[in-house]
């Protein structure tokens, strides 16, 4: 979905940034957004404060608030997938090459364990 949405916005994207952090291509405020997302997952208040302040300074408070909303939404979605053991279904074949190249297949598929 990241690849498709960046194509829609005519932005180049380095998908490896999703897996490993770092430069994400032409997405605006990518560095600050990634740092904020990483801080939220860490759960460390001091780290979150630094990343939040930097994102507000660079992109503004509305961007920060929306990023907080999206990040916290996916703190939920990953746990739904992990705790119910769902399979990818038809998406598995469609995204097979991309998942292999990014290393997503190294994560356990809950349905198979």
């Amino acid at each position: 979905m990241l690849r498709a949405s960046s194509e829609t916005h005519d932005e180049s994207i380095n998908l490896d940034a999703v897996m490993a952090g770092g430069a994400a291509g032409e997405i605006e405020f990518a560095t600050e957004l990634l740092a904020f997302a990483e801080a939220i997952v860490s759960g460390e208040d001091h780290t979150i404060t630094i990343a939040r302040d930097q994102l507000v300074k660079t992109a503004g408070q509305d961007v920060m608030v929306d990023a907080a909303g999206v990040a916290s939404n996916f703190q939920r979605m990953v746990r739904i997938a992990d705790s119910t053991g769902i399979v990818l279904g038809p998406m598995a074949e469609v995204t097979s090459d991309l998942r292999e190249s990014l290393g997503i297949n190294s994560f356990a598929n809950r349905s198979s364990v």
Binding site: M1, S5, V18, E28, L33, A67, M77, D82
Partner: peptide, 17 residues
Amino acid sequence: SQMELVAGRVSALNQCY
């Protein structure tokens, strides 16, 4: 695209297959 960047990074850090 910014939403999906944040969503993808959070999912990856949670090791979500």
